[in-house]
Design a protein around this nucleic acid. Structure first.
Length: 505
RNA sequence: GUCCCCGUCGUCCAGUGGUUAGGACAUCGCCCUUUCACGGCGGUAACACGGGUUCGAAUCCCGUCGGGGACGCCA
């Protein structure tokens, strides 16, 4: 038996959404999928919805949501419905919809397509480790699938916490259509009994996304390829509720240079980083539009008639994308997020600005009053002439800082232990709130634990971030320079040293 | 390990049975130039492999190999 649920009729007005999770800095992948959804909706007279998926309270970052809004606006994307602008299908923040998910989980419990599972997270983790050790696929063993009503009542009476899991039908398979691919089939032996409602009462992505997409009347789910393998669970859920399916479009995943899924370790992924580093939003958007194809190359006739240079086939604006972008053209190989080409594109846009516009661009970003004002007090006491400002603060305005080993390597430390310690600094800073006292205590705590003196500790970081052993106060400088750029500089340093170390071997 | 997706220059894209396999970025060379950059001109560079189908395969089919993703009370 194969499930073949009905797909929503084509006549419904197009509605798409992006659903970022507020767990940190806004991600280039969010802008990429956002752009695609935006284009899809606008080309079809549809609505583009922004929904915040904040159901993981352990990873929740309070400042993140606002940063996501600002970053999307920065690249030029706007949404028709969302937590900030409202809309007829709100609330658009999942943490405000918990009651809805609970009710829907009850429906599944009642119709037998879901069940309660009383294992603890620790028990499940132990099971997973055993399975991995035994080289078998890590999967929930379905132990509580067949609990008798008496057992369930006993557990409930005990007040034992539980999750609600999807009861994936046995011995069948699910087939769904991906609009960019052929039909995709998953045997249910390979589909886990996914947790739908966590023991804290919050839904997992799977439940929340299906319920919300249905209630918000989403017609087309355009998301990253990493979701393909959980799509059968979603199809099963639509089925269990008796709902029509949206169309699924899985977009290729952005990649690091080594082709792995894009990650902050290997590539700057924060939109804040690009903004603060002086990339123009139109260049970023253009670059994202280039990845994965979608834009038809100009024909020879167009090149001749418009007097285009051949390279200008790669240069286009959002209105041009709206006009020409074709989803059926998207190529499925995961595109490398190539910083080199992004920089070239950005240079192209920079050169096209008028002198006044260029000046304005500098003054609103890298030379903004706010930025210079924040830097000024760090060097005032150290200066004898204003002319020394540049000497003391150049690292705030530089892209590439690569101190030689003679600068960053402490006298009494080896290369290996120092690089390892710098990696620890990165981890500590990633977890730190970005203010001077938090940074300082995070570093000191680490130094004490690893037996690094405050001097060695701070000097190392100073060298990595400023390229010098003489600089304005370190923690204050870090705060002004910004978390995303500071951490990126540290990551690049580590990558560079790793490569050098490999070359020596 | 299991399942799923993908596979054209180093990178991003063209190419959908008949092309000298095209463009962009990068790279190399030349020109312009006080330097660098910009700009101009030119070069190197790819159909992963093996079987089919066909008069003819980058294009269609199968297998192999390679890459990636998923396998969480993360999203």
């Amino acid at each position: 038996m194969t499930f073949e649920p009905t797909v929503a009729p084509d006549s419904r007005p197009i509605r798409v959404r992006i659903a970022p999770s507020p767990t940190g800095d806004p991600h280039v992948g969010t802008a990429y999928i956002g752009l695609l959804n935006y284009l899809f909706a606008k080309q079809r007279g549809g609505k583009f919805v922004l929904r915040i998926e904040d159901t993981d309270r352990t990873r929740f970052v309070a400042t993140s949501e606002h940063m996501i809004f600002e970053a999307l606006k920065w690249v030029g994307l706007t949404w028709d419905e969302g937590p900030d602008v409202g809309g007829p299908f709100g609330p658009y923040r999942q943490s405000e919809r918990t009651e809805i998910y609970r009710e829907h989980a009850e429906i599944l419990l009642a119709n037998g397509t879901a069940y309660r599972s009383f294992e603890t997270a620790e028990e499940l983790e132990a099971m997973r480790q055993q399975q991995i050790a035994a080289k078998t696929p890590p999967r929930y063993n379905g132990a509580h699938r067949h609990l008798t009503p008496a057992q369930i009542d006993a557990y409930l009476a005990e007040g034992r916490p539980y999750t609600i899991r999807l009861k994936v039908p046995e011995n069948t398979s699910t087939t769904f259509t991906d609009e960019l691919r052929t039909a995709i089939t998953f045997d249910h032996n390979n589909v886990d009994d996914q947790v739908l409602l966590k023991s804290d009462g919050y839904p997992t992505y799977h439940l929340a996304n299906v319920v919300d997409d249905h209630l918000m009347q989403i017609t087309d789910v355009i998301r990253a390829e990493e979701w393909i393998s959980s799509t059968p669970k979603h199809v099963l859920l639509y089925n269990a509720f008796g709902w029509d399916l949206p169309r699924f479009w899985h977009m290729p995943l952005l990649r690091n240079v080594d082709k792995s899924k894009i990650s902050k370790r290997k590539n700057p992924v924060s939109l804040v980083f690009y903004q603060q580093s002086g990339y123009l939003p139109q260049a970023m958007l253009n670059f994202l539009g280039l990845l994965g194809g979608g834009m038809a190359q100009p024909t020879e006739a167009e090149i001749v008639s418009k007097g285009l240079n051949t390279k200008e086939g790669d240069i286009f604006s959002l209105p041009e994308m709206l006009e020409k972008f074709d989803f059926k053209r998207i190529s499925l190989g995961g595109p490398v997020f190539d910083l080199v080409k992004l920089k070239w594109l950005n240079g192209e846009y920079l050169r096209k600005l008028t002198p006044d516009e260029f000046f304005a661009a500098l003054r609103t970003t890298i030379l903004s009053d706010d930025y210079v004002r924040a830097i000024a007090p760090l060097v005032q006491a150290r200066m004898e002439t204003l002319g020394q400002f540049g000497d003391m603060t150049s690292f705030f305005f530089s892209d590439n800082i690569s101190p030689p080993e003679s600068v960053w390597l402490p006298k009494k430390r080896t290369f290996e232990e120092t690089v390892a310690f710098a990696a620890e600094q990165l981890t500590a800073l990633e977890a730190a709130t970005w203010d001077a006292t938090s940074i300082e205590s995070a570093l000191k705590t680490l130094g004490e634990a690893k037996q690094w003196s405050v001097k060695e500790n701070f000097m190392l970081l100073r060298a990595i971030l400023t390229g010098s052993l003489t600089s304005p106060p370190l923690t204050e400088s870090l705060v002004v320079f910004g978390k995303s750029r500071s951490l990126d500089r540290l990551r690049r340093f580590l990558e560079t040293q790793k490569k050098l170390a490999n070359q020596r071997k």
